[in-house]
Write a protein that binds this DNA or RNA. Sequence first.
DNA 1: ACATTAAGTGATT
DNA 2: AATCACTTAATGT
Length: 210
Amino acid sequence: MNQDLRENYSYLLEDELLVEIEKHSLLKNYDCGDEIIRQGQYIKSIPLLIEGTIKVSRKDELDDEIMLYYIEEGETCAISMNCCLGNSKSQILARAETPTKLLMIPVEYMDEWMAKFKSWREFVLSSFQTRLNEAIYTIDSLVFLKMEERLMQYLRDKTKIVHDTAINITHQEIAKDFHTSRVVISRLLKKLEIEGDVKLHRNSIEVISL
DNA sequence: ACATTAAGTGATT
DNA sequence: AATCACTTAATGT
């Protein structure tokens, strides 16, 4: 029946389950740029990607989109599963990045399959895990950029106080001020040094770009 | 020379 | 980002 399904999922999901999926899912095709899931919409089936790439994003109060992540072949959308399970509105917007082929699985089967098929349970769980990890990573990097700016500001302020471009301070002491670990500060400072904003010495930091 | 403390790094969560 | 574990560099005794 469905060659594509087998190609992408046979190593992940057991045969019996694949048959079930074939029986109950609906094959859909999208062209580049097509909206698959709109923000605020209720989701009644979860997508299983067969071919193509989907960009998942979120719109803020204004109109600009914030890209959350991509879904590629052999993956599913953890957020849409979450919406299904909670029967809540979609918080996200999914758009086909390339021509896309996917299977829509009606929500009703989620529960049944979760109980019946170990492979399905693992697949769903690992999807959640992967997604969550990526989300954490994304958030961290945003905070990280803020930290770098804060650190630079902090150093500049210090030079004003000391009336010197060289500040006598250890990474550990800075870490305390920032409520973070010494390792994090060391890494940030190292980066600033590579970027040429600062010169590092033992027990002191020289601020280059004031 | 040896010990102590500061700083750098990679891997993991 | 945080933490661990470990290495390397600088300094003091």
